[in-house]
Amino acid sequence: MARIGLLEKGFSYAVLSLVGALMFAPFLYMISIALSSDATTVKAAFTLFPREFRFENFVRVFTDYRMGTYLKNSIIITAFTVFGSVLSASFVAYGFARIRAKGSGFLFIVLLSTMMIPGEVTMVPQFIIYRELGWINTFLPLIVPSFFAGAFNVFLIRQFVMGIPRSLDEAAMIDGMGHLGIYAKIILPLTYPILAAIGIFSFAWNWGNFMGPLIYINDPKKTPLALGVQLISTVSGGQMPPWNMVMVASMFLTIPMILVYTFGQKYVYEANINSGSAGIK
């Protein structure tokens, strides 16, 4: 019995390591390309394990390309969108979770049903609206919508708030606190795990968002990193893209995502379970 167990254990480790190596290989390849010299890049003679260590590539991407600008733009856009989506969604969710009013049930159903509409349907009219407002080539089309509370985020927070005992609100109300006070002083501090998760989702979505900047930004000075990486890879007719620089830029794009998910793991995990079971019930 013990022997079979040992055999099975060994087999499991073998499977996990083999498939795991396949999963990790692309990361290693990315690093290896990023550290390659220009000579290697021109020949595309890349290897899985790095053979050159041109760490100066990580400086060159700032001096020879616009990495500094791309990064700065991404940080600005992401900071505002994360702040806007967390703040607005929690504010709206409080209304849906705690206050009954004429039409509140109906509006909640409207909110839920907007989740079914694919972004492609509203993409073209939104472009026309922002164009009329003169917002093309600004960050505004990428930032402002996040202050209008995403339906999915509202739903997640509302479910969370429903689980907070109402007796807390009632006690505060007796003490003379109004809705704004209850929201800011009682509910908001208690919802931080789900707010953290939404902040992470929002970060991930906006940091990596490609289609938005592609539609609204065509000025290199306003370009965020996700689009900037693609710009670096775009070269005129027949030339080999500077793959080493592309992969350096890709690493700048990827590493913050890995960090945020690593540090936010437990919040994402909880929210995943909530949204997963919300999706199936």
Partner: peptide, 18 residues
């Protein structure tokens, strides 16, 4: 196993071109 799924699509797309 989870790591690849957090890579932004722009980065993974360019990586797969290579």
């Amino acid at each position: 196993y989870y790591l690849p799924s957090v890579v932004p699509v722009v980065a993974s797309s360019l990586l797969f071109v290579r």
